[in-house]
Nucleic acid binder design. Structure first.
Lengths: 193, 193
DNA sequence: ATATATACTTCAGGAGATTAAGTATATATG
DNA sequence: CATATATACTTAATCTCCTGAAGTATATAT
């Protein structure tokens, strides 16, 4: 009688394996682990190490996102009215909040802002790299993205997307105000609400 | 000399923990595991069990998606010029592509669209639920989101965010064209490019 | 100098994951 | 029918994760 285990995905792995017509041995061989380990994992007898789980997921072509999908349960719509949104004012930059945490304690997977950058303004002196991914679209104005040692010029209507883990800086290089929508995943939680 | 470990996320956990000002002891106590385990995980000395990893990720409010992100990642900026973007035309709906896959074979974690919905138009007859999360902001017009059996009314400037796994439908309920930016994670790959 | 406190690391031993060998059941084959 | 082969599950030994206590490091106080 153990079952201290909390997150069970054994059934999912088994289902996929069987649908693909693999045997325990097949998977075990490819993953360089024992047949019995696969058996126990599929029956939720053990909580495998992350290494082994990813290995097995890889072999069966299972997105781990799917394995954990019943673990992340956030089923709320969070609406933020334009009149209620917060903003952070800096010298040349205004960041308007566009997303809020859902009601539950769980966090949303995206966070969005409306960026307004005045002439010669910038989001930060080569902001430190951080995890995740960013997406942006230029609503008005001319922008330059400095990314590592590369530079990208963007005009109205252009959109872009990149991993955030390389230092980056977003600048207004035109004469009018630069407006852009910015979406970050995972959330950085600039607004606590 | 062990180091059979393949996927290292220790640094990420440590970085987040420190940014949040938690000590090893704080996290250990909340997760009901030992301080030394946290220390070893953060220094990649062990590959923790899935149970423990999820527990710790929860406490630090880290999306596991992020922990595994260099496992499925790419590091390219992909820019899409407004003149080059594709669009899907339906009777009352136009979907303009705002993001593209990076050069590498790995997929980006977000996909973005500019939605234009004509009077009385809708994105789909209660579109089937699918995994992930969506974020939207209304640029122009009046909208209604049907979500499960709930309904949300949205006006210009309002933004919203919700998990996609419940059937949902997005409708124009005003007299002019509804324009909205829509971000989906993970990508649905409407545009193949 | 010594004490006290906080944050983290190391190490030996115990708990739990993983292996190798053995059991069980089914289907085939001569 | 015997026995051979294939798949999945169990058991006992082994290895890795994990714990608890002791140790290092740095800071602040007395």
């Amino acid at each position: 009688m153990k079952s201290k285990m909390k997150y069970k995905f054994g059934e999912k792995i088994r289902a996929v394996r069987e649908r693909k017509g693999y045997t325990l041995k097949d998977v075990a061989k490819k993953a360089h682990v024992s047949e019995s380990l696969i058996s126990q994992i599929e029956r939720n007898k053990v909580s495998p190490s992350v290494d082994n789980l990813l290995l097995i997921a890889d072999i069966l072509d299972i997105d781990y996102e799917y394995l954990f999908s019943n673990y992340r349960q956030k089923r709320m719509v969070s609406v933020l009215k334009s009149s209620e949104r917060g903003s952070i004012q800096k010298e040349k930059v205004v960041i308007h909040q566009l997303s809020i945490d859902g009601g539950s304690s769980k966090e949303p997977e995206v966070e969005a802002f409306l960026l307004e950058i005045k002439k010669n303004g910038t989001t930060g002196d080569q902001e430190y790299g951080h995890p995740g991914r960013e997406f942006g679209i230029i609503l008005e104005g001319e922008a330059e993205l400095l990314y590592g040692n590369e530079s990208y010029i963007l005009s109205e209507g252009d959109s872009l997307s990149f991993p955030s883990d390389i230092p980056h800086e977003f600048k207004n290089r035109g004469n009018k105000v630069l407006k852009a929508i910015w979406v970050v995943t995972p959330p950085r939680r600039l607004f606590k609400n």
